[in-house]
Design a protein around this nucleic acid. Structure first.
Lengths: 342, 342
DNA sequence: ATTAGCACTCGATGGCGATGAGTGCTAATA
DNA sequence: TATTAGCACTCATCGCCATCGAGTGCTAAT
């Protein structure tokens, strides 16, 4: 059977109506809502076809129809083809500059949640190729050394090293020069054992410290270590219609939402495959995280130049205002992009 | 009327039973549960008295009694007098050292939530008098300066400053010495305008940079800026009996739980008044945060020497296993204390 | 191909009586 | 005087059943 134009129109009407009301929608409603001028009986026949084709389902006999995952998928796909919606209200909401990265991202999560009424998440940007930019060792205390490591994109890591021997200023300076001249501009794959051995040899009796610094560098450069996920709007999960009478599932989802581990999977998936727009929609079982299979996830990837990429997204009910969510995500995504083009 | 020993015993029995079952408890149950050998009729009379005195209430006529806030308060107070319970299982759970502070605290929150089955929160320690320990300016890029600021307790802050003029190594060194000799060991109140002016004068043409550094220092030292609150076990909120059929309240509480702002109030309250044990219990309306008035909050203050103090706590139903919660909190509190005595 | 008509299905709603846990009161008892 | 047995009364809960109505699928007419 073919999904001709009339069937498409009916399907869209069913879904749009269901998104609004949350109730299974019947033939009479469609007959009145569309401009097709068809009687409810005709619609019934068409809906029967659509059900056979898997786009809609009946929760029980003698009830209206609701969209299946496949139905939602159709809806989202046709929607994405349409022109971008304007979401002006968000401009300015996150425009203050000079903010710390984490405050900014936290606020983005908040804005996103408040705007969509769904649960939102935002990750810190990940750098795929973290090049070392600068290392600095300083003495803080008699036997404490502070190692500051700056990687590309001005991400800064600190590490305090306890040392037994007392280092004088001159040695410290030598070590600084040694480390910087050898390591700057390198990314993690390029710091191999041979180089470490060479560094240790040149450091002579201070090789222990070099060792510790290298460890700190390795940790600093390993970006996934540093992935932070900010969430907001968890409460909205309680409003999701597919969960209202299923406390257990709601609870599971809330839990998931504070488990960075699980969200991480989602993020990785999002970052992995790259389609044109940067927007991804996972409906029901399409999600990489099993416990979200009753929900839909919409994510966007933002880019901060230099290959830094992060994810913002919302986790909502399958019955979601996809149009608005996608619009909002796009706007925020662009805002982030421009903010960091300062 | 007086709360004689028999009434106390009955009250305790009522509360203990209610904590277990969650059902209003009747006179017959008490008659069987206690070792008083009284008939249900006698108990009825006593319970009637207890109700008059405000320790228990009847959800509706011809139902059993449940504790009022005042009843819980009595229960908790008598309980706190008893000897400390041993909670051995927790030893070792958070024993790994060498962890980053935030990972550690995150895990403490997790352990706490998992152990009690309530919602848990942990704050980073706050330093009341933040003394400056060390400042370091380094050139990262042609026109970017990295300022590293270490305050007492080895808390490190970074800040990247953009500069117009190009600074050579020598000037940088001079600035470093200037800043360190003048500022080290001072806390925020001691850095006054006169001193800043003096610094700027000595810096000469580089006074703009000094200005920026001072700003960064001020921000770094302002500790409340840096208060982070880790939460865990939000899902447990859904299990609280007083909220199970009140979605709205549950939702509100969940929201509260991700609003650092609100939790902060709680923290401040906790840190403010200091009784002997470091444990505080807020029952129902006693809480400083209004939206928690259907819950109980139990907090503990941990100390990390040098005046660094943080809060760990749980937010649970009024019908809560106070005994276990307090025990768990005490154990974790001590663990944190000892871990940081390395 | 479309539509009117009709019998049928099934969840939702609300009334109703039975059930039973628990109370307060009174009178008997130790 | 304190305790207890007995009893009438209250009220939330549960299962049952009839009703209602939205919505369907099928058939026959247009």
């Amino acid at each position: 059977m073919e999904l001709d134009e009339r069937k498409q129109k009916i399907l869209q009407a069913v879904i749009r109506n269901y998104l609004e009301t949350g109730e299974p929608v019947g033939s009479r409603t469609i007959s009145k809502d569309t401009d097709l001028n068809l009687s409810s009986a005709t619609i019934r026949n068409e809906m029967s076809d659509l059900e056979e084709m898997g786009y809609i389902v009946q929760p029980h006999t003698s009830a209206g129809r609701i969209p299946s995952d496949k139905g939602y998928r159709f809806y989202v796909d046709t929607m994405l083809e349409k022109k971008e919606r304007e979401v002006e209200e968000l401009k300015g909401l996150i425009s203050q500059k000079d903010e710390k990265m984490d405050t900014l991202l936290k606020r983005v999560a908040k804005v996103l949640a408040a705007n969509t009424n769904y649960a939102a998440m935002v990750t810190t940007p990940q750098n795929r190729v973290n090049k070392l930019k600068f290392i600095q060792l300083s003495r803080v205390d008699a036997n404490q050394i502070l190692a500051v490591i700056v990687v590309e994109g001005n991400v800064i890591k600190n590490s305090i090293l306890n040392v037994d021997e007392i280092l004088d200023d001159e040695t410290l300076l030598k070590l600084n020069i040694l480390l910087n001249t050898h390591l700057n501009g390198l990314c993690i794959d390029e710091i191999n054992l041979a180089m470490i051995a060479e560094l240790k040899r040149q450091a002579g009796i201070h090789s222990a410290i070099v060792s510790e610094v290298i460890d700190a560098v390795a940790e600093a450069i390993r970006s996934d270590e540093d992935l932070k996920i900010y969430t907001s709007g968890t409460r909205n999960i309680l409003r999701y219609p597919e969960l209202t009478d299923n406390r257990e599932k709601a609870s599971e989802l809330i839990n998931l939402f504070e488990e960075e581990q699980a969200l991480n999977e989602l993020v990785q998936e999002t970052l992995a495959d790259e389609n044109g727009t940067g927007i991804q929609v996972y409906i029901g079982n399409e999600t990489p995280v099993q416990s979200m299979k009753d929900c839909s996830v919409v994510t966007a990837t933002y880019e901060l130049g230099e290959g830094m990429r992060g994810t913002i997204g919302i986790i909502g009910p399958k019955r979601m205002d996809y149009d608005k969510v996608i619009g909002t995500l796009k706007t925020l995504m662009n805002q982030l992009d421009t903010i960091y083009k300062k």
